[in-house]
């Protein structure tokens, strides 16, 4: 089951295959929880978002369309939107800085189901370090725009009003940030 691709697993999940679903869950649970926690800054709220995300994957598996993007994109999109909704409703607001890689905190004891699970966890950890370093190497003004919009849920208009930055500047910084991020990671051989 671990050798199946995301798309193959989703095809089984559509058929209510719990084992396939669990494989997907084990594959992405840490990343989804980490993303929700980064946005919300609250463990309990983040785990609620994680549960709701995976629930929607199970419940709306049939609506997943590979033509519209990859499973991780869909999954992370659900998790982010749920998290941002909470932030915008004012329930959980926390300005979270980028974590220090030298002092990572693992909130729960890792529970690896099998060797594939361990390998996925190690790969995820390595991927996290690569992308995180690439993000920290962006110019501060570009990194801030990404942080404000993607992780804090601010709109372009809010940023323009609060930070007194013109729309055009925001557009440019966002574009430059994404271009550079992709370029740096491609140079490192990172494959999404």
């Amino acid at each position: 089951m671990n050798d199946l691709s995301d798309e193959q697993l989703m095809a089984l999940v559509i058929k209510q295959d719990v084992a396939a679903y669990r494989t997907l869950y084990e594959r992405y649970k840490r990343a989804v929880l980490g993303l929700a926690y980064k946005i919300l800054g609250d463990r309990a709220a983040a785990e609620e978002v994680m549960q709701e995300t995976f629930w929607r994957i199970w419940d709306s598996a049939a609506s997943f369309d590979t033509q519209r993007g990859s499973l991780p994109n869909w999954m992370f999109g659900i998790a982010r939107n749920l998290s941002i909704d909470i932030v915008r409703r004012g329930q959980k607001i926390k300005m979270q800085a980028l974590p220090d890689l030298h002092h990572d905190h693992v909130e729960a004891t890792p529970h690896y189901q099998d060797d594939h699970d361990v390998a996925d966890a190690a790969l995820l950890l390595l991927r996290h370090k690569q992308v995180h370093i690439a993000l920290t190497e962006l110019p501060a003004e570009q990194r801030d725009v990404v942080e404000w919009i993607y992780f804090q849920g601010k709109t372009r208009r809010q940023i323009a009003q609060e930070m007194d930055i013109p729309f055009g500047t925001i557009n440019t910084r966002a574009k430059l940030a994404l271009d550079k991020l992709k370029r740096v990671l491609q140079a490192q051989g990172f494959e999404d």
Binding site: R30, G34, Q130
Partner: peptide, 18 residues
């Protein structure tokens, strides 16, 4: 742009669910 933005979730520290 989507391909680049798809990398952002990986900036978050992976966490083990309870």
């Amino acid at each position: 742009a989507y391909a680049a933005a798809a990398l952002l979730p990986y900036t978050a520290q992976p966490l083990e669910p309870s």
